[in-house]
């Protein structure tokens, strides 16, 4: 899963402090494993270097000075490409898929499209497996079936998510 793309996407709705970013990330995706400050700032500096974000002024007040970051056009394009590209179907994908769905919702993009793209990719692999299975021996069949069942589980989860997008949107959008 890509933390840098997640942070980039979280910046899309508007400029934020590094601290805000960390909090937003932890709320939506941390699932008990919070992001370290160091990781946030190192990621942001990498994004700065690649021209995907830029600084948008410093806010003075109590505590340390706080830099605000904002996404560049190059950054928006990067997010869009990422969301639009299917993940390589493989087991234990849901973290990435979930992140993508939530980010699509947060950024007002079509989560359904994300899901459809993913389904297509999954089905393509499943078709390949099915074809292999039909031609293969019992061992092939069993191995393929294992993979097929896992992929099917992913897809089922996707369907379930798709069916609950409205509810999810309410939860993730404050």
């Amino acid at each position: 899963m890509s933390v840098s793309r997640t942070l980039l996407a979280l910046l899309e709705p508007g400029p934020r402090h590094g601290y805000d970013l960390k909090r937003a990330y932890d709320e939506q995706f941390a699932q008990g494993r919070q992001l370290a400050y160091g990781q946030v700032y190192s990621t942001l500096s990498r994004l700065l270097r690649n021209g995907l974000v830029e600084e948008a002024g410093v806010e003075h007040g109590a505590g340390p000075d706080r830099k605000r970051y904002t996404i560049t056009d190059a950054g928006v394009t990067d997010v869009e490409t990422w969301l639009g590209t299917a993940e390589n179907p493989e087991p234990y994908l849901q973290n990435t898929l979930y992140t993508k769905v939530v980010l699509a919702l947060l950024s007002g993009r079509s989560a359904t499209e994300v899901l459809d793209t993913q389904r297509s990719a999954h089905l393509k692999v499943m078709r390949e497996l099915t074809r292999r299975k039909t031609g293969g021996d019992l061992a092939d069949q069993l191995i393929c079936d294992h993979a097929l069942f896992h992929l099917e589980a992913d897809l089922r989860w996707l369907e379930l998510t798709a069916a609950r997008l409205d509810a999810l949107a309410e939860v993730v959008r404050p």
Binding site: L123, R127, A162
Partner: peptide
């Protein structure tokens, strides 16, 4: 069908929503 494993026997799929 609503089952992916069944749909995997197809050449192509469309989605009704």
């Amino acid at each position: 069908t609503h089952e992916a494993r069944v749909a995997a026997h197809s050449d192509r799929e469309i989605v009704v929503r």
